[in-house]
Design a protein around this nucleic acid. Structure first.
Lengths: 261, 261
DNA sequence: GAGGTAAGAG
DNA sequence: CTCTTACCTC
């Protein structure tokens, strides 16, 4: 089973690129972030025509997340991260697909630091921690996947020294990410490529992609139960070079069939 | 000599379509309207690369007119319709190309009727009348060409009864157009196709092009001196069906070489 | 730089 | 509907 994440930065503007990539990569499950479309303007018809069914949680202008699947039924579990009924931003959607809990997230950016947006990010991470601790405790096969807006280590950024006070790299969020891993979640891409520079995002500005001035923000975390099934993975970084591409590249992993292990 | 007019509705957004049509139609002279670009953002390089030189009068957001020519020198005569120094809208540019006076215009829309915009339209037509009377008096070979925003007759609109109080069809502007023809100007497209329904504009709304709910707004008027050289003409209406097309279609005529008559 | 929104014009 | 500008976010 191939599971992917792609921050599309506008699902309608990105549709040609998204469909081209789906056709090429043929993932079984795709988590999308930054739909930037209200619920009723999700391009379901075109997604269906490409062979995918979908659930999504839209929002006008910002955020918005979706889970797509080809050939597997999608059973929605929830469309909000528990812990704050006041939080109306569409950043989390959770479903069960082929007996696996898929948690698709678009974690707050948090800039500027310091400030209320950074505080919101920390609070959001706390709530995520509670949810993911539960999943671990319940011993479920689960995937936490999406745009974390967290650069996990100095090795995951072109010039670490420039990022010290950026919300994507602040020590608080790196520590929180590390704490999740300590609980048992596997950073699958880093595990597969322990020594390689791997980026998933290159800014539109300053020809960041041409200079490979990127950062690693999009992650696929596997619960202990699933970790042994990790077969392969990667970043489709060439997609970032396509015409009218998102500033993120798709990230994917492949899991061994359950019977095989 | 093939002379064309095309209301592009944004010269920068329309560039792929414009270049494709230029390549296909190979006009010698092209009058453009609704550049919707300030003077410094006219895409001269791309126009030059397509083999055309150009003069233009831009304006931020609205209006804007240009004259393009392939292989002929363009001698600019004026870039404003005489008669009102207060009028700063870029709606008129005049040049001599191959001994012919080319008057490229984007006549005010004039809606809503009644109101100051309609009054401005009538005043603009008055000034145009003065200028074109002069050209007739001087016996010059001249072409008045562009988007007149005038539906000349009931035969030039899908459903005339719906347009009685529209500034494009108001009796005042139709009368004014008729008066120009009486002075000696030849409505070349109508002359070539006296019996046919001919439209040059189809609204973006309500699938107007699919329903062929169009109107005839773009005209090519020939001075008496030139009328005998009229060889052929037409509307490239298929261009209106292209992806990302303008709401207008290009209109063109072909003149016999001067020696030939 | 490139998405989104909104208003104004057509 | 589809242009434009100006603004906001990342």
């Amino acid at each position: 089973m191939k599971i992917a994440t792609y921050n599309v930065n506008g699902v309608n503007g990105r549709l040609p690129v998204l469909l081209r990539w789906l056709q090429e990569a043929q993932p079984d499950v795709v988590c999308l972030q930054e739909l930037k479309a209200p619920q009723e303007r999700f391009p379901l018809k075109e997604i269906n025509d490409a062979g995918y069914n979908a659930i999504w949680h839209g929002q006008k202008s910002w955020n918005g997340v979706a889970i797509l699947s080809k050939g597997y039924e999608i059973t929605e579990v929830q469309r909000a991260l528990p812990g704050d009924p006041e939080d109306i931003q569409s950043r989390y959607i959770e479903a069960i697909i082929d007996q696996i809990v898929i948690c698709c997230l678009y974690l707050p950016n948090g800039n500027p630091y310091p400030g209320p947006k950074f505080e919101y990010k920390l609070a959001w991470i706390d709530r995520l921690k509670k949810r993911t601790d539960e999943l671990i405790k319940m011993d479920l096969p689960a995937v936490i996947i999406g745009d974390f807006n967290i650069i996990p280590t100095p090795f995951d950024v072109h010039k670490p020294e420039r990022w010290e006070n950026d919300a994507l790299y602040r020590i608080e969020v790196r520590k929180a990410f590390e704490k999740m891993l300590k609980k048992g979640w596997l950073d699958s891409i880093r595990t597969l490529f322990p020594e390689e520079k791997i980026y998933t995002f290159w800014d539109y500005l300053y020809k960041a992609y041409d200079r490979d001035a990127g950062i690693r923000l999009d992650h696929v975390l596997l619960s202990p139960y699933l970790s042994s099934r990790l077969k392969s993975g990667g970043v489709d970084r060439h997609v970032r070079g396509w015409e009218k591409s998102s500033d993120h590249a798709p990230v994917w992993i492949e899991l061994e069939k359950e019977g095989k292990q």
